[in-house]
Amino acid sequence: MTEQTVTINYGPANVEVDNSYENDASYGDELSSYSASLTSSVLDYRHENGRRYHKYRDGSYLLPNDETENNRMDMIHEMCLVLLRQKLYLAPIKSPKRVIDLGTGTGMWAVDFADQHPEAEVIGCDLSPTQTPMVPPNVKFLVDDIESEWAYESNPFDYIHARNLAVSIRDFGKLIKQCYRSVKPGGWVEFQDWDCYPISPDGSIEGTGLQRYFKEVYGAFEKAGVEVRPGPKLEKCFKDAGFVNIHVEKYIIPYGIWPKDPYLKKVGAWNQAQAEQHGFEATALAALTRHKQWTQDEVLLLASQAKADARKHSIHQMFDFYVVYGQRPEN
């Protein structure tokens, strides 16, 4: 393992010489000062309501990036491994040489993939440089906004992966078209994502604080222009982008251990565990305070009511989770 490298990508630009420096043979203190300024621009996080948020492209992502949230993201990674029966991906890729993980978060997926594929160069891309500090030598992390224009067409990928981008992307169709342009002919793109609104087959969620929570919180995300139900739309996005050999799998993620089936019970236990890690609060705070003008106390009360309902054995909720992959045509 080696220390991670964080790269800040601002895209191509015309380069003009700054003649304000003295004609020294080498750079001096001004280089250290300028480098420190660049680093601080990414690490100068926003702090509000007792949580920490990204500052680069401020406001693009409405969930925190602090240690508590990073721990929760790692728990979701483990839940997804259980859900997919310890598979990191489902696309039929073979010996990929260049791979990118969009919205990599803590970077756990990128690290695990790099361990499985030491022949591959693996890039993890995110708005925040909060990835795990120890990584394999074939991994690097890039600070960038994946909804901005990319510059990968001249050096495309064999495989592009994205997971859990719900409540963070405004236009999945545009993003997937960007993936199409940036993957090699014959290469694969895979998205794994939620329909964030819960299902309650027996109607037990009706009229509960839990139902009110999802209505208010996801209503705030939708007001902000963010997609909260990408899963069911992914297949059409892949078709519209031009992918072929599209494959769709839909999974059920229960909340809690109420299912009888041992596999679903284990998935549900992981889902409850990640939500108990301040997940209700993390999802709601910025969305409601910034876009619906709620107070912090009002949000925390709503979250506590939802969490209390979610712990009740009599309430049975679950979510649809989609895995969709497709191939760019060889020709």
Rank of each mutant, 00 (worst) to 15 (best):
L81R: 13
D66F: 04
K55E: 04
L62C: 00
N71E: 15
H47S: 14
I76E: 09
L83V: 05
L43Y: 14
R51Y: 03
E78V: 12
D58H: 13
D66P: 05
S41P: 06
L43V: 09
L62Y: 02
L43E: 12
V82H: 06
Y61V: 04
D74M: 02
K55I: 06
P64L: 01
D66L: 05
G59H: 07
P64T: 01
R57C: 15
M73W: 03
S60M: 11
L84Y: 11
R46C: 07
L43A: 08
R57H: 15
M79R: 10
G59N: 02
D74H: 08
R72F: 01
L83Q: 05
S40T: 09
P64M: 04
K55C: 12
T68Y: 11
R52E: 14
L83T: 08
H54S: 12
E78D: 06
N49G: 03
R52H: 07
T68W: 09
N49Q: 11
S60Y: 05
I76D: 04
V82Q: 13
L43P: 02
N65Q: 03
D44H: 00
I76T: 09
E48F: 01
Y61P: 02
G50H: 10
L81N: 09
D66K: 06
R52Q: 15
R51A: 04
N65F: 04
R52C: 14
M73H: 07
E78P: 01
V42K: 13
H47A: 13
M73N: 06
Y61F: 15
M73P: 00
Y56W: 11
M73D: 00
R51V: 01
H54W: 08
R85N: 13
V82S: 07
I76K: 04
E67S: 08
Y56Q: 02
K55Q: 07
R85D: 07
H47M: 12
N49F: 02
Y45I: 07
Y61I: 08
E69M: 00
N49T: 03
N70D: 00
V42G: 09
Y45T: 08
L62S: 03
G59I: 01
H47C: 13
Y56I: 06
C80Y: 15
D74C: 09
K55S: 13
T68N: 15
T68A: 13
N70H: 04
G50Q: 00
N70K: 04
N70A: 01
K55P: 05
H47P: 01
N70Y: 05
S41N: 10
Y56H: 12
G50C: 10
R85S: 03
H47F: 15
E69I: 00
S41T: 13
N71F: 07
C80P: 08
D74L: 06
V42T: 14
D58I: 13
Y53I: 07
R57G: 13
R46I: 13
D66V: 02
S40A: 02
L83W: 05
M75D: 00
K55D: 04
D74K: 02
S40H: 09
E69V: 08
C80A: 11
E69W: 06
L62H: 04
N49I: 03
D58A: 15
H54L: 12
N71P: 05
D44I: 02
L43H: 11
I76N: 01
R52M: 11
R46D: 12
R46K: 13
E69C: 03
Y61Q: 05
H54V: 11
N65T: 11
H54G: 14
D74I: 03
